[in-house]
């Protein structure tokens, strides 16, 4: 009967086997199961927001249809494509690690990082427009323009500010749509940033050549996380941008 210590002594260091596991297979399976369980918590974390979205959209369908017009479908579409591309390169990174292709692995991780950075860049342009238009739900909330870009208020001959008859008037409670929009996309953006941090850490480790056919768990698990982050965006995009 060999004890665990003997067992570990025989194991190739390339497996990076932690002290409390019996075998590299067990270590990998445990990590994978842990990541799936964590992703379940992530889904439930977002589920509160999706529930709030469903409640308010069913209560105020017209408001959601109006407010969605403020969102830039083109930029949203580009961002969706960028994220899907990053999922592809992340999946490819897993394959590279499994096959021991060190250069390919580093390349894929870098492309994934660039895509994620691009996504955040485009997102910040969108946020900037919204905040500029008074659509950030804080104390200064109040739209300046309607969804078509027509000013909601104009100055008449006497210099007084009056409602612009050419604009579509903003409905009451416009704020609750943007409350949900900023909470959902903001939380998603935070997950993208966390993912970028982890992927950068993986890149540093990949440069040291830590990954290969015997040890690719962290790449695999991070890829799972990354796909879920993408998947959440794939739900957010039509629910927020494509409903008018």
């Amino acid at each position: 009967m060999s004890s665990a210590a003997d067992h570990h002594a025989e194991v190739d260091p390339a497996y990076r086997l932690a002290h409390h596991f019996e075998s590299p297979e067990q270590q990998f399976e445990t990590g994978k199961f842990g990541m799936w369980a964590f992703l379940v918590t992530e889904i439930l974390f977002f589920s509160g927001l999706f529930t709030a979205y469903s409640v308010y959209r069913s209560n105020e369908a017209d408001l959601f249809s109006y407010a969605s017009g403020y969102l830039d479908t083109t930029l949203g579409c580009i961002n969706t494509a960028v994220l899907i591309l990053s999922s592809l390169t992340m999946a490819w990174a897993v394959r590279c690690a499994q096959l021991g292709q060190q250069r390919g692995l580093k390349f894929c991780l870098i492309v994934t990082l660039l895509c994620a950075g691009g996504f955040m860049g485009i997102k910040s342009v969108e946020y900037h427009h919204k905040i500029h238009n008074g659509l950030f739900p804080n104390a200064h909330f109040g739209a300046h323009e309607d969804p078509d870009g027509v000013p909601l208020h104009i100055t008449d001959e006497s210099g007084a500010t009056v409602a612009n008859p050419a604009a579509r008037p903003a409905p009451e409670n416009l704020r609750s749509f943007f409350g949900i929009y900023f909470c959902m996309t903001g939380l998603h953006g935070l997950h993208v940033l966390i993912g970028m941090g982890v992927i950068f850490w993986l890149y540093l480790r990949a440069r040291r050549g830590e990954f290969g056919p015997k040890y690719f768990g962290p790449i695999d698990f991070t890829a799972l996380y990354w796909h879920v982050v993408d998947l959440i965006w794939i739900f957010l995009f039509p629910l927020l941008y494509l409903i008018h």
């Binding site: 918590t41 509160g48 739900p137 609750s176 409350g179």
Partner: peptide, 24 residues
Amino acid sequence: VLATPVLGITLLLLVAERALGVGI
């Protein structure tokens, strides 16, 4: 694992409601 994340998002929304007034 299944219930606590929902508390997490609820409290985050409460904080956002207090700090910004997101109207949820």
